[in-house]
């Protein structure tokens, strides 16, 4: 009887330990975000017009569209199915993996999400400044210790869940569901103003449409003077 009890406790402890180690492995796989971002804007906030993401005025942009460079237009014409795949029922592609089978993403919570993918598809270091110096999993240092300096850089993770549980676990993060965002004119919380489905994304700090971005910054949602933007979440 006693030995059974011990076995039960031992098994329970092992299970708890296993689940804890899985959780910590997931969080340590958070990807890294480079400080290097879009060119600074001296245009007043309030509109995308005139911001670094306003691509009108270029010869290529004959229709003068602002939105379509980033958001591909949805055509309605009927096109023939691919010659080698006549069994298709769809005519359009999934953009940035936004519509995904639910079984797919559960295990890859630390990879860039759909709404950050739209940024990274241009900000790849070639087409536009690299918005993302590192990859996931801290893999880089495994190749060669000499490259740690290059790789680790000044990066911030994205597409991870930032919730009360994380703030409790971390100890140095405010609870996003109670901490005010402090964004101009807002009385709402970090969670309401800056997170997307509880996730931190590129757009948590960067207002890519320049609706409320601080002029002269890299389209930041909040002035970073005195590290105010960092201290919105980090309790230091």
């Amino acid at each position: 009887m006693m030995t059974w009890k011990y076995k039960i406790s031992a098994a329970a402890i092992i299970l708890i330990f296993l689940s804890a180690s899985i959780t910590s492995a997931e969080t340590s796989m958070a990807p890294l975000l480079s400080a290097e971002t879009a060119a600074g804007s001296s245009v007043p906030a309030g509109t995308i017009v005139g911001s670094p993401h306003d691509f009108r005025g270029y010869l290529w942009n004959r229709s003068g569209e602002i939105c379509t460079p980033c958001h591909a237009p949805h055509k309605t014409q009927i096109l023939p199915a691919p010659l080698w795949d006549q069994g298709l029922s769809t005519q359009t592609y999934i953009m940035y993996g936004k519509t995904r089978p639910p079984t797919m993403e559960a295990a890859v919570t630390s990879q860039p999400d759909g709404m950050s993918k739209i940024c990274l598809s241009c900000h790849d270091g070639i087409m536009a400044p690299d918005a993302y110096g590192g990859n996931t999993g801290g893999a880089a240092h495994l190749f060669d210790k000499d490259f740690m300096g290059i790789v680790q850089g000044n990066n911030h993770p994205i597409s991870f869940i930032y919730d009360t549980a994380l703030s409790t676990r971390d100890g140095d993060l405010y609870d996003p569901s109670t901490k005010p965002s402090g964004l101009t004119g807002s009385t709402r919380t970090v969670k309401e103003d800056m997170l997307f489905s509880n996730r931190m994304e590129c757009a948590s700090c960067h207002d890519v449409h320049n609706v409320k971005a601080v002029p002269g910054t890299q389209l930041l949602v909040k002035d970073s003077a005195g590290s105010a933007l960092c201290l919105t979440c980090h309790n230091k």
Partner: peptide, 9 residues
């Protein structure tokens, strides 16, 4: 330019 099959984004 477009999200239809045969297009590019």
């Amino acid at each position: 330019h477009g999200d239809q099959i045969g297009g590019f984004a």
